[in-house]
Amino acid sequence: DTCAICRVQVMDACLRCQAENKQEDCVVVWGECNHSFHNCCMSLWVKQNNRCPLCQ
């Protein structure tokens, strides 16, 4: 699966965690819609949006 926000494989660290060298801290979360995201990506997304980027 791919993170619906950053488009990186969810089993890999997101771009932000890769840049900050925090790959082991990058975890996967699932929305109520069952789409998967990196927690970092979702945390930033929900500050500006309240819907899944794929379900909009």
Results as ranks from 00 to 15, higher is better:
1 D>C: 04
1 D>W: 00
1 D>M: 01
2 T>F: 07
2 T>N: 12
2 T>R: 11
2 T>P: 08
2 T>L: 10
2 T>K: 10
2 T>H: 12
2 T>M: 06
3 C>E: 00
3 C>K: 01
4 A>P: 14
4 A>T: 14
5 I>W: 09
5 I>N: 06
5 I>C: 06
5 I>D: 02
6 C>L: 00
6 C>H: 02
6 C>G: 00
6 C>M: 00
6 C>N: 02
6 C>F: 00
7 R>P: 04
7 R>V: 01
7 R>F: 04
8 V>T: 12
8 V>L: 13
8 V>M: 13
9 Q>K: 05
9 Q>S: 10
9 Q>L: 06
9 Q>V: 09
10 V>N: 15
10 V>E: 05
10 V>M: 11
12 D>F: 01
12 D>P: 05
12 D>C: 08
12 D>A: 10
12 D>K: 04
13 A>G: 15
13 A>L: 06
13 A>Q: 15
13 A>E: 07
13 A>P: 09
14 C>I: 00
14 C>M: 00
14 C>S: 04
14 C>Q: 04
14 C>N: 03
14 C>D: 06
15 L>I: 05
15 L>D: 12
15 L>Y: 11
15 L>P: 07
15 L>S: 10
15 L>H: 07
15 L>V: 10
15 L>T: 12
16 R>C: 14
16 R>T: 12
16 R>D: 14
16 R>G: 11
16 R>L: 11
17 C>N: 06
18 Q>N: 08
18 Q>K: 09
18 Q>C: 09
18 Q>D: 08
18 Q>H: 08
18 Q>T: 12
19 A>H: 05
19 A>I: 10
19 A>G: 09
19 A>R: 08
20 E>W: 01
20 E>K: 06
20 E>S: 10
20 E>F: 05
20 E>Y: 02
20 E>Q: 15
20 E>N: 00
20 E>V: 10
20 E>D: 02
20 E>P: 03
21 N>S: 11
21 N>R: 07
21 N>P: 10
21 N>H: 09
21 N>Y: 02
21 N>F: 07
22 K>P: 11
22 K>S: 09
22 K>G: 09
23 Q>A: 13
23 Q>T: 14
23 Q>R: 10
23 Q>S: 08
23 Q>M: 09
24 E>A: 08
24 E>P: 08
24 E>N: 09
24 E>I: 06
24 E>F: 04
24 E>R: 12
24 E>W: 01
25 D>A: 05
25 D>N: 06
25 D>K: 15
25 D>H: 12
25 D>F: 02
26 C>A: 10
26 C>P: 15
26 C>W: 03
26 C>Q: 15
26 C>K: 14
27 V>P: 02
27 V>N: 09
27 V>S: 14
27 V>H: 11
28 V>T: 15
28 V>H: 04
28 V>N: 13
29 V>Y: 13
29 V>L: 08
29 V>A: 11
29 V>K: 15
29 V>N: 15
29 V>T: 15
29 V>G: 13
30 W>A: 15
30 W>K: 15
31 G>E: 15
31 G>V: 01
31 G>C: 07
31 G>M: 08
32 E>S: 07
32 E>L: 03
32 E>W: 05
32 E>I: 04
32 E>D: 11
32 E>V: 06
32 E>Q: 10
33 C>Q: 01
33 C>N: 03
33 C>E: 02
33 C>D: 01
33 C>S: 01
33 C>H: 09
33 C>W: 00
34 N>M: 06
34 N>W: 02
34 N>P: 10
35 H>Q: 01
35 H>P: 01
35 H>C: 05
35 H>I: 00
35 H>E: 00
35 H>R: 04
36 S>P: 14
36 S>L: 06
36 S>V: 13
36 S>I: 09
37 F>M: 12
37 F>R: 03
38 H>V: 01
38 H>M: 04
38 H>T: 02
38 H>S: 00
38 H>K: 00
39 N>F: 00
39 N>A: 06
39 N>L: 10
39 N>S: 10
39 N>C: 04
39 N>M: 02
39 N>I: 05
39 N>H: 12
40 C>L: 02
40 C>S: 02
40 C>D: 06
40 C>I: 01
40 C>E: 03
41 C>P: 01
41 C>L: 00
41 C>V: 02
41 C>S: 01
42 M>L: 11
42 M>W: 15
42 M>G: 05
42 M>R: 10
42 M>A: 15
42 M>H: 11
42 M>E: 06
42 M>P: 01
43 S>N: 09
43 S>E: 15
44 L>A: 14
44 L>C: 03
44 L>Y: 15
44 L>S: 07
44 L>M: 12
44 L>R: 02
45 W>G: 13
45 W>K: 12
45 W>R: 12
45 W>F: 12
46 V>C: 08
46 V>W: 10
46 V>E: 14
46 V>F: 14
46 V>D: 13
47 K>M: 05
47 K>P: 07
47 K>Y: 05
47 K>Q: 06
47 K>E: 12
47 K>R: 09
47 K>C: 05
48 Q>K: 11
48 Q>W: 03
48 Q>Y: 13
48 Q>G: 09
48 Q>P: 11
48 Q>H: 09
48 Q>F: 06
48 Q>L: 12
49 N>Q: 11
49 N>V: 06
49 N>Y: 07
49 N>K: 07
49 N>S: 12
49 N>L: 04
49 N>W: 06
49 N>R: 10
50 N>D: 15
50 N>G: 09
50 N>K: 15
51 R>Y: 15
51 R>C: 12
51 R>W: 12
51 R>K: 05
51 R>P: 13
52 C>Y: 00
52 C>P: 03
52 C>H: 01
52 C>R: 02
53 P>Q: 06
53 P>V: 05
54 L>S: 12
54 L>C: 12
54 L>V: 15
54 L>Y: 10
54 L>G: 12
54 L>E: 14
54 L>A: 13
55 C>N: 03
55 C>A: 02
55 C>L: 02
55 C>E: 03
56 Q>C: 05
